[in-house]
């Protein structure tokens, strides 16, 4: 077969190329540019090679933020995924309560992120907040602005409150797509509730749960707004996650080179971990 050569066709993809260039490629290249050079702010650059990458990779501060980030992400995944599945399993499959449940579940997802942070900040304040008052009233010494443990508890509770709904909705979509005949077949076999979950519901939910894990992983690894509003990374540096640390470095200290290098490392970590997750979870499908 002879292909028709027509260079005019390039004009048709040009708008997309321009768009992608301006919103993805050029900003990314700017970061790459900063990450290998030293600048003093007056638009003069000196070649720095991989110094910033070495600095960041050897920095105690980066290690600490990364550990905090991994702790945060895996904690919320370990809570939100099972909790979301359990809530989805208990939701009605038909009847008038379905829309009520779905709308209630969707509500936290509709709230702007900085508002979520503000709501939880006020909610948890020990002097005036409902949560803070109740906990202290019960005799628990709780002050998230001073105690790192309390700050972490509040941060995780906020994320669970905000994002479990997403897992619930995805898992629910997977559950309602299972034909009734599967449950009848299981009933005829005399399968237990656990066997039904293990051999019918879980395999049928697998694809949507894979997506749920990936979305929650990437979103939580990028989280910035809510902890920024809630704790601002404190007390001390105890809730300074990667993104908060990055903003402190770039905008607080104006260390553009190290910040750019850190951005790229941050980006590569998310990319690599997402790929590992996806590969592990889809391994069975391809067999």
């Amino acid at each position: 077969m002879n292909k028709t050569v027509n260079h005019k066709a390039w004009f048709l993809v040009l708008p997309v190329l321009v768009l992608v260039a301006f919103n993805a490629f050029i900003p990314l290249m700017t970061v790459v540019n900063y990450s290998v050079q030293e600048t003093f702010g007056d638009n003069t650059f000196f070649w720095a090679g991989l110094i910033w990458f070495e600095d960041v990779l050897h920095s105690e501060r980066f290690h600490a933020a990364l550990v905090r980030q991994l702790t945060f992400t895996f904690t919320i995944l370990a809570i939100e995924i099972p909790l979301g599945v359990v809530i989805a399993l208990t939701m009605p499959k038909r009847g008038i309560w379905v829309p009520v449940c779905l709308v209630t579940m969707a509500l936290p997802l509709l709230i702007p992120w900085n508002v979520v942070g503000a709501i939880w900040n006020i909610f948890a304040l020990p002097e005036i907040g409902l949560l803070g008052q109740v906990l202290n009233g019960l005799g628990i010494d709780y002050n998230f602005t001073r105690q790192p443990g309390a700050a972490w508890f509040t941060l995780i509770a906020m994320d669970v409150w905000h994002w479990t709904s997403l897992v619930v909705l995805l898992a629910y979509a997977g559950l309602v797509s299972i034909p009734d005949a599967f449950y009848q077949a299981a009933k005829i076999d005399g399968a237990s509730t656990w066997a039904i979950f293990r051999h019918i519901q879980l395999p049928k939910m697998k694809r949507v749960l894979t997506i749920a894990v990936l979305l929650r992983f990437m979103d939580s690894f990028n989280i910035y707004t809510e902890p920024f509003v809630l704790t601002g990374g404190g007390p001390g540096n105890s809730t300074t996650l990667l993104s908060i640390d990055l903003v402190k470095l770039a905008l607080g200290q104006f260390d553009l080179g190290p910040a750019a290098a850190m951005s790229l490392i941050y980006f590569l970590i998310i990319l690599a971990l997402s790929w590992i997750f996806y590969t592990l979870m889809m391994r069975d499908e391809e067999r």
């Binding site: 034909p179 077949a185 005829i188 051999h199 019918i200 395999p203």
Partner: peptide, 20 residues
Amino acid sequence: PVQKRNVSMVHQQFINYPNM
């Protein structure tokens, strides 16, 4: 209940346990 009756059934949809 059906599990005590020694019944088996084949449905119009192909019903098998997907992960077995």
